[in-house]
Design a binder for these strands. Sequence first.
RNA 1: AACCCCGUGGUGUAACGGUAGCACAACAGGUUUUGGUCCUGUUUGUCUAGGUUCGAAUCCUAGCGGGGUUGCCA
Length: 696
Amino acid sequence: MRADAEAVKDGAGVDFIRAAILDDNRTGRFQQRVHTRFPPEPNGYLHIGHAKAICIDFGMAAEFGGLCNLRFDDTNPAKEDQEYVDSILADVRWLGFDWDDRLFFASDYFTQMLAWAEDLIRKGKAYVCDLTPEQVSAHRGTLTEPGKDSPYRNRSVEENLDLFRRMRAGEFPDGSRTLRAKIDMASPNLNLRDPVMYRIVHAEHHRQGKAWCIYPMYDWAHGLEDSIEGITHSLCSLEYENHRPLYDWFLDQLGIYHPRQIEFSRLNLTYTVMSKRKLLKLVQEGHVAGWDDPRMPTLSGLRRRGYTPEAIRAFCKLVGVTKVDSTTDVALLEHCLREDLNQRAPRVMAVLRPLKVVLENFPEGTVEWLEAVNNPENPSAGTRKVPMTRELYIEADDFLEDPPAQFFRLAPGREVRLRWGYLITCREAVKDAQGNVVELRCTYDPATRGGNAPDGRKVKGTLHWVSASHALTAEVRLYDRLFLKEDPEETAPGQDFTSNLNPDSLEVLAGCKLEPALGEAQPGTTYQFERMGYFAADSRDSRPGALVFNRTVPLRDTWAKIAKKIAPAASPARKPAAPAPAAAQPEGVALIGIEDFSRLALRTAVVLEAETVPNADRLLKLQIDLGSERRQIVAGIAAFYRPEEVVGKTIVVVSNLQPAEIRGVTSNGMLLAAKTKKALRLVTVDGDIGPGASIG
RNA sequence: AACCCCGUGGUGUAACGGUAGCACAACAGGUUUUGGUCCUGUUUGUCUAGGUUCGAAUCCUAGCGGGGUUGCCA
């Protein structure tokens, strides 16, 4: 902030708001004062978009040595609630901002606003209008045509005063009358066509109770609130730009202290929806578990996910302040998060998908305590001891029976390093009846304690691990982006943004194995599970003995990229595909043995997208959801199905075939269909079977 | 269609009228007991057309494109 202050001095490299403040300070418009405010309506939870506004409102004030108020704009009792007040207070505080004793409520100004309204009536600038909402709307005109004056526009001051007082006294039912400003029904700015100042609402207000039955509208109220508080710069988002003439008009007519409204563009993020309405829909329709679901862009959701306020603030700073309507790549947010967490998160070892390893030459019943560094980025974080025994767990993905050359993890005969431990060599992979690898028999080299070989031999791979007998068992929730599309609003006709929800945005892993130090983990500190990502204990569901961790963000994964390049279907190398059976053609007539058939993995899949393949009029390229992953397959069905016909169908796919190149397009699997000379019909599954089910 | 606002690499942003820079992303290398971090490098940009000027991303005009506005919501 001090560095910014330097930049602010000469006016170069400064955004338009800082430039305006600088200018006002130069001309003495506000006697060099800078006083801003953050004015949320307590009708929903704060999200990352609000974080940008908060950083600007509080940040500008701090930067110029001024103050920032926290003010609830609680002028609509129908939508507002104390629950939201409480959450907003907690979120702003968590983000790291302090309003001292300057917590205000617009509803506390209602009496003063009323006096000003009567002042305007006396000046002949406001009138009571008896038009119904429909009539008001009809009188307003359109974008291209001027509106018509209300028949009540020219009532006398006495009549207006009398009617307005009776409105306030509760003599009239909801919606029967309004107080309107008398401006110009022909203004090209629709906001100036005699806007409503007060409406009648007989509702209980969360703070005022039943004290009021008329409530001020935003445009009337907001400038007054700013004026009362002595705000200098009323910073708000772009959609209020067209309201500024009205903001100014009210203050000018009243002749009271007049702050300056300045608008900036709000934050948009890829793969995210940001409006309260849409977030509410996600909650109400059960697409997420609540406002603080870790997939939500709410501050409470991000907090529960393991985001730090520092990361969010750094992000807001990077995003900057402009009037350009833009969408920021969510990758930038994740970058800021990783940058922060890399410096601060304690490292621990946790095995998410455990594979048992038995060190055959390690003495039974012995525990060795090895020294592990807590944070290589921060030596002052110190070290800890981790227990090592004969039986361990490693990550299932860290073993491949028949690995590609670039894979430098464990495989039969290969040697790797256990992080902070010994070099081990795999002797044998033990399989179950289905051929799944269930256990590794390995040996360790007792001369390599700490991870280095005395003979200087190089070992490329280092694996994280956990002692089987010391491991804590936990549930881990793997979160991914909530939407499949960068722009969730980009939908097929008739669909809404919920059609773009990512079905794999949450994967729950049970039976994860953690190193014992994690038993103490408290929500609020985010750990790095080495080689896996950043994780935080869940504030709602985690407790000692029943630990639950949320993945905050994965580590960057170069291996996943390589794996994808060498074998798209094999990545991220979770379940190695079995060799492709020769008799995999569905229409084949050759008899095969039951053993061969059992090697075909048939699974259900939902078609997410379908498109034609250029220069191949019989082929369709399909993106399918296999439950655990998404894949691309190519099928020769274009003569029988149009792309849009197959989207959404639950089909059956042979999922363990080797990838094939068909007309230059990679196909990772084959779908099942019944075919005659003239017709072809997809094999589909109906009812409540989701994607990923295996056909037994 | 009327009014208002906005157009700089894929994305977010800089550049008193004077060398179009930074970050993210992508890609390629190097270091590494986390395929993390870190380091190096590469690719990609001033919406268009006129005008003013020695010189325009910047000033002017027009066009084109995008967003906002027809709540008794904020």
